[in-house]
Amino acid sequence: MRVEIWSDIACPWCYVGKARFEKALGAFPHRDEVEVVHRSFELDPHRAKGDVQPVLAMLTKKYGMSQAQAQAGEDSLGAQAGVEGLEYRTTGRDHGNTFDMHRLLHFAKERGRQDELIQLLYRANFAEERSVFTEGEERLVELAAAAGLDTDEARRVLRDPAAYADAVRADEREAAELGANGVPFFVLDRKYGVSGAQPAEVFAQALAQAWGERPALKLIEDGAADACGPDGCAVPQP
């Protein structure tokens, strides 16, 4: 079974939702038969690459809330992240364009290191003092290396603005076609969608339901045929 997760590194609920989903997946009896794929979704796709601002300033401007309201929201998010065992800095974080991170995640997927990289990007953005937005290319290369990727390859991807750009845009178009107007958005076997950072119990129920409705394999047979099995292979008859 395949689970696709549309998310953005700048999305705190994606950070929390991933932990809740993984808690459910860890208890799922068929977890070793579930493929998880991370898909791209930019919360702020029109923000210029160099346009970085404090999270609290972004929240007050975008949602028309006061500084106190924005801080209260961050404090609440920090508390909920803590319940999931996640570190979350409620002050001092910044916000910026995530397009290069999504391109790098597509490269990581090709190398089989996508989940490792997205977890490191989330932690860097939400838990660490260093910024994933202001330190530039080398910070992302450093995180790519920590995820097990080749630094020279990662640097080449970041320096080529066309590398994996089409893959990011394709993910975003597909999200729109599926009706996802926010993230995190989970799609299970292209049958069920789960929107938001739901409790682990909801994810557990969705996994069980999607697994239970997988079609049984139908065999097409035309009489007996030679084959091999645990006891050996059929011996051709003259």
Rank of each mutant, 00 (worst) to 15 (best):
S131H: 00
F21T: 00
D94W: 02
L77F: 08
L121T: 07
Q71N: 09
A145E: 15
Y88W: 11
K49C: 00
Q67T: 14
S76V: 07
V141R: 01
E35S: 13
G193I: 12
A108H: 13
Q198D: 09
P184G: 09
A204C: 09
P238I: 08
N125D: 13
Q71W: 02
G92Y: 12
A154R: 10
D189S: 15
G50K: 04
L77Y: 01
D115H: 06
E128A: 06
A170D: 15
A206S: 11
R31A: 10
Y192H: 14
A206I: 10
A206V: 12
A144F: 05
T60G: 06
K218R: 14
T134H: 07
F99W: 14
A145P: 07
C233H: 08
G223F: 09
L105V: 15
V235M: 05
G64V: 11
P54F: 07
A48R: 12
A163W: 05
P230M: 04
A146F: 00
R159C: 01
T151F: 01
Q198G: 08
R113K: 15
P12Q: 08
L25M: 08
A227H: 13
P54C: 04
E42G: 01
S131D: 01
I118A: 04
F203A: 02
S131L: 03
Q209A: 15
A48T: 04
Q71K: 09
L207T: 11
Q119D: 12
L143R: 00
R169Y: 05
E201A: 15
E128T: 03
A24T: 06
I118P: 03
V3D: 06
A163K: 11
G229Q: 07
W211Y: 12
A124T: 01
T134P: 03
G112I: 02
R93E: 01
R169K: 15
R173F: 12
I5K: 13
D75H: 06
V187M: 07
D152V: 10
P236H: 15
E177F: 06
A234L: 11
D231V: 10
K61M: 06
L56Q: 10
D171E: 06
P54D: 08
D94L: 08
Y88R: 07
A124S: 09
S66W: 13
E142R: 03
E137L: 05
S195E: 10
L56E: 08
L105S: 10
E153T: 05
D226P: 10
G196K: 04
R93D: 00
R169S: 09
L59T: 02
V3G: 01
T134D: 06
Y122A: 02
L219P: 00
D100A: 07
C228K: 04
K23T: 14
G92R: 07
L104S: 10
G196T: 09
Q114G: 03
P199D: 10
A57S: 15
T91A: 15
Y192R: 08
A144W: 06
Y122S: 02
D166H: 09
Q114D: 12
D222E: 14
L43I: 07
V187T: 02
E42T: 02
E33D: 15
M1Q: 03
Q114N: 04
T98F: 00
A146N: 03
D150K: 07
A216Q: 11
T60A: 03
